[in-house]
Amino acid sequence: MKLTSLAGKLARFLVYLFLLSPLLVVVITAFSDTNRVVFPPRGFTLRWFERAVHSAEFNSSLLLSVRIAVVSVVIACVLGTMVSLWFWKSNSRAKGIFESVFLSPIIIPTIISAVAFLQYFVLFGGLFTNYWKLCLTYAVIQMPYVIRTVTANLVGLDTSFEEASLVLGASPVRTLFHVTLPCIRQGIVGGAVFSFVVAFDECVIILFMKSAKTVTFPLRLYSYITESFTPLISAYSTLFIIVAAAVIYLVEKKIGLSKLY
């Protein structure tokens, strides 16, 4: 009895170690007092973090990535939630077809989507700035994530909540905002977090659609790494690991991401 539980703990520890060791390596190399990333690190310094915080290029890329991610997440959440609600209510035969259409961006290889978007914007590109092209493209890519988390929430949602609201005198619109949306809040926030991550570290589409004005953060990191492989990269990565962990922790605590699966 005791032995098996001990063995279980050990196995779990090894799995975590396997999953986390690449991250650990990155974090450790960020403190290396060398001009190249080396492992094991030599010396100890915080200068790479200082550089990271003060680099104007990186900071503007970071800001751009956040702006693109936020705008595309908002678009994806609004549209994705609407689509999910329609799926939930509709008994129409066309539903099955639309479901596969809306979920297809997950299945279709990103490189193919990238080519498709590129061609699409060659035709209609004049209407948008490159920034908006990226926002719209990412919104399309993100929508399946929102639809999936919101739909997972809606499946368990009793229709009598809406009916109770209607019967108590709320119009359908007020019912949507006072009852339905609050009930699926978890799904929407979960979808938003996922799609934010998707937009934020997207590397393929941006290669096709970048312009001088739209060097996003992953792109900046990538081009920097091809020129010089300093621990600055590790410092950025470390910062991100910390921010991401904090976000996941907060979301988990506030709404419980794990409930979505």
Binding site: S160, A164, V179
Partner: peptide, 18 residues
């Protein structure tokens, strides 16, 4: 529509807004 009928209803599962 229901919201203009000035009625109300008690549901089997209560349907309290969670």
């Amino acid at each position: 529509p229901p919201h203009k009928r000035d009625i109300s209803m008690v549901f089997q599962n209560y349907a309290l807004f969670p």
